[in-house]
């Protein structure tokens, strides 16, 4: 439990740091902190239940993207401003490093494991973002479509 809180705190600090790199200011920083905390919480909970890094990353990415889309619409700000810092703690930096390490050590088996994990986690992040963005577009487009139908009837 305590370890989980520490992990979440670290993820939030990391996300805020990244937001500062991109010159994000004001209220958006608070939203990013909240989003990052929630996304990391989901990641850790799923990790605890399944012990599967890829599934957990996918869950985290889905939550991150959903939060970013919702908050961006509320704040009338571009999604990407919130999305990138929120999703950063899920990035497989660890597996990138370990695959390099095992590659140089000539440990083919470990390299293959880490490298595959890195690719799968990257794909999970991408997949999560794509899915959420697809759903959002679907909602927006069908909204517009129904509005037009109603307009035509009148």
């Amino acid at each position: 439990m305590e370890e989980m809180l520490l992990q979440i705190a670290m993820a939030v600090i990391g996300s805020l740091g990244f937001a500062i790199f991109f010159n994000t200011r004001g209220k958006k920083l608070a939203l990013i902190a909240v989003g990052s905390a929630l996304s990391t919480l989901v990641y850790l909970l799923v990790m605890y239940r399944t012990q599967d890094r890829v599934v957990s990353t996918l869950a985290g990415a889905l939550v991150s993207a959903a939060i970013a889309e919702i908050m961006a619409r509320m704040m009338k700000t571009p999604v990407i401003i919130l999305l990138v810092p929120i999703v950063i703690p899920l990035v497989p930096g660890g597996d990138l490093y370990y695959s390099m390490r095992y590659f140089i050590m000539g440990n083919a088996e470990e390299f293959s494991t880490s490298f595959q994990f890195m690719l799968k986690e990257a794909a999970a992040i991408a997949g999560g973002m794509i899915l959420v963005s697809f759903i959002v577009q679907l909602i927006l487009k069908s909204k517009r479509y129904f509005k037009e139908i109603r307009h035509d009837e009148i």
């Binding site: 705190a9 670290m10 993820a11 600090i13 740091g17 500062i20 790199f21 010159n23 703690p89």
Partner: peptide
């Protein structure tokens, strides 16, 4: 002319990211 964060803040952000992810991992 929107200003960027000052160098001190950027330095702090680098420290935040590196140190927090070191603990995270």
């Amino acid at each position: 002319n929107t200003s960027h964060y000052s160098e001190a803040v950027m330095m702090l952000a680098y420290i935040m990211v590196a140190a927090s992810f070191t603990v995270f991992f």
